[in-house]
Design a protein around this nucleic acid. Sequence first.
DNA 1: GCACAATACCTTATCTCGTAAGGAGTTGCG
DNA 2: CGCAACTCCTTACGAGATAAGGTATTGTGC
Lengths: 265, 265
Amino acid sequence: MVVYAGQGDARRTLALLWRTSAPEGARTAPGPKPALTVDAIVDAAIAVADAATMDGLSMRAVGERFGRTAMSLYTYVPTKRELIDLMYDQAHAEMPADHDLSGGWRVGVESWANELRALYLRHPWLLQVSHARPVLGPHEQGVLESILRILKETGLEPTVVRSVVGSLFSLVRGAARSVVEAGSAAGTTGTSDAEWWALRGSLLRQIVPDFDRRFPLSTRLSAEEPQPSSAEGTPRWEREAREAFTGGVNILLDGVESRARRRAH
Amino acid sequence: MVVYAGQGDARRTLALLWRTSAPEGARTAPGPKPALTVDAIVDAAIAVADAATMDGLSMRAVGERFGRTAMSLYTYVPTKRELIDLMYDQAHAEMPADHDLSGGWRVGVESWANELRALYLRHPWLLQVSHARPVLGPHEQGVLESILRILKETGLEPTVVRSVVGSLFSLVRGAARSVVEAGSAAGTTGTSDAEWWALRGSLLRQIVPDFDRRFPLSTRLSAEEPQPSSAEGTPRWEREAREAFTGGVNILLDGVESRARRRAH
DNA sequence: GCACAATACCTTATCTCGTAAGGAGTTGCG
DNA sequence: CGCAACTCCTTACGAGATAAGGTATTGTGC
């Protein structure tokens, strides 16, 4: 009845994350065998969140995937929060464990970043997982270890590595966020993104007639966007967002490279 | 009864954001005068969110600040979502409009980034505002205009400017996020951050005995953290986080500078 | 001054959530 | 066989957003 706040929770959560509960097949406890597994529940929850966004993720919805009630899940998972932590970590399992370093660390970093970005785009709800505390699960940890393995090649000192890793995570999350936002904005109203922006723009101009005067640089910047007439393949904003992202990563890596060179005489 | 989804909402929201409703004092409508204003409600909501985090932000809680019911707010604001958008934009009004450029663009960018980071730390709930669609309010726009004014000095082409701006926002948000997380993690359990990490670490080592072997680089990196024995002033993680942030910004700006130089022959 | 209509605010009700409490059926072990 | 552990269910509660509709207030036209 009493919830062991903090300590007890942390231990239980960590045990779940690292799946250190089942002692390898030996089942000697009475009572019905569990019909579900934590893994199955986590997968189902991920499917729900992928399909219906984070708002649609309710314990009832997850339970329904198994023809069960919401309450049945509480046998496997203490609260919804822990379930979300598990989902978060599980999603990171999709990242490849090893990165090809034959092309040099710079190529490695770029591919790591692109893969992480793609992961976030596949599971946009990841961006809404509010890390009130670090998750510390195996797969999240694996992603960290991956980038460290790549950056080891640079020979940079730990302080710089920490900065770079943090910056890379920020860039990836930020980039993914803006794509997801643009996509969902377009998706909600049913209009294409071009239409949506046009509508939004004309509305803005209508409501704020002196916009151009008040924000000349913003206006100029968006006016200077390349406007390819063709509308084939991936949407324009998606390509643009990707370019802005790789551009940002590249600028950062320029900085990293100059430091690495400086260090190596 | 029918909500004009998308279009109607967008217009109403934009009108609220830019406060283009009151025609300057001329009130000729019958009925009781409004006792509240949108501004007052937004300020109250910000106060609630500052004090009680985003979870504590309920329409009831905001209404109570005026001795009113939750429903009374709906006269001023269509839904909670719009209220949050208004809060988001209003908070950005705290950013200074002009930045001193006498120290050069590099100093300007750094101070802009630091101020934005400080804003996020003052209002951590900003990080939880899920931009299902861009807000496009005047103050958010002002912040964008500010950084563009600073970056204009670099003379870089628009594509690069876009990348840099996006990267800066990502870095700031990411950095703020990690500080907020660390702080709330320490705050929730009542333990200090040092204790919290120690506890977490020993728990991890207990539950995952082969952690060091599986994640050698992560282990080494955190072992190499500077461990000042003194515990005075700001917490260690806070200073560290700040250093990692300014470090990241600096690395990025190194990249920007090299491009700016390259461009200027 | 008075009826009317617009308006602000309230009460009530609905629906959705997470999850506490307390069964009821299931199953391995002594 | 009976106990005890275990899974899953029904029911219930309280909190939240917000729809519907009622009531009181107040400026305008007669």
